[in-house]
Design a protein around this nucleic acid. Structure first.
Lengths: 185, 185
DNA sequence: CAATTTATGTCAACAAGGCTGACATAAATT
DNA sequence: AATTTATGTCAGCCTTGTTGACATAAATTG
């Protein structure tokens, strides 16, 4: 490969990219920073357990869908079984999750949280829920529906079914935006 | 350390965690899935260049704030200089970014995109902007303000100043939510 | 029943992108 | 002249993703 001499040929562009370039930078950056801080609270907590984000996701979904199989979990997380194996093994060995052989199909391993695993899931979710609640305080119930609708349509259409199956979750949001006020249920 | 026998002692919890546990799981999961898909488009594109998310962030902010120094970039990204060095070197060597010695302070290296770097930043931002625009189509101009206000208050207060300094961006959102319709400017 | 497929587990190697610690250089500051 | 600052670089480590290969037990199929 021929080495180029980019520094001598390429010229520096000194003007910033802005909204004028037809890109919604405000939203892109807000989403980036918001998500970064959204994950920062659980990240800190996880570090004290010696766990990482991967453990968080596993603990979360096992608590949300107790009894799901390894294959189902892989499908939700979209990672390989080898990736899952490492963190899942740790969580099982340290007593946060237990496996129970499936009844209908004894090849399957159903995943359940222990009391310890339930506590961890709650502890991880609490600061995130608090952050969201805080961000919603200035908004009314209808705004909440707007935000849910927005976030939901940011998700790839073919993956939305996953969300809809989660218990008591966002699947209940009307596709048409502006659902009935959730707060009054 | 004594090894416990968790499988024999710990009992499986069979009930799912739900909203009833006082946690806003709907929002937590929507945010998770939305962000995951939000990053999937650029991720795919980056792979064709042999780049990763780290490169994306660098290219993005150098294009948004041309001439920022290495130290400033580190502050925005919140990573170590050793982490940055790897990806930055690659981007410089392949001609996406160039460094120019600072004028006032010649120790500093000001970072600028090349034309190639500008094109890449635009190509990466385009699908994200499209996804956002699509998610906003069903919503009105006032809803946009609601979402911006929500995302902004998800960010740690002390880090919000960073956002406010970005050109033509979300810093312009009124803190009180419901800004004047952006679309009519 | 035998053969095949399926669900899961496991070993090994690799890559990206974080991290820490240590040290080097040049330029600014004191 | 001495110190601090901005940057670069080397080396090694960790987490979490990847691929490929192979093993086992249970279900399914011909």
């Amino acid at each position: 490969m021929m080495a180029k001499k980019p520094a001598e040929l390429a010229k520096a562009i000194r003007t910033p990219l802005t909204v004028d370039d037809g890109i919604d930078f405000a939203m892109i950056e807000l989403f980036f920073f918001a998500y970064r801080d959204f994950t920062s609270d659980p990240d800190q907590l996880l570090a004290t357990y010696g766990f990482g984000r991967a453990h968080h996701r596993v603990v979360h979904f096992v608590n949300r869908i107790p009894g799901l199989t390894v294959a189902e979990l892989l499908d939700v997380l979209k990672i390989t079984k080898q990736s899952l194996a490492r963190v899942l093994k740790q969580l099982i060995d340290t007593g946060y999750i237990i496996q129970i052989q499936g009844l209908r199909d004894r090849r399957q391993r159903e995943l359940y949280p222990t009391a310890k695993g339930r506590d961890l899931a709650l502890a991880l979710a609490a600061p995130q829920s608090r952050r969201i609640a805080n961000a919603l305080t200035r908004l009314d119930a209808q705004d909440r529906g707007t935000i849910e609708a927005f976030l939901k349509s940011m998700v790839d259409p073919d993956l939305r079914t996953q969300i809809e199956q989660l218990p008591g979750g966002a699947g209940n949001v009307q596709d048409k935006a502006i659902a009935e006020p959730e707060a009054t249920r």
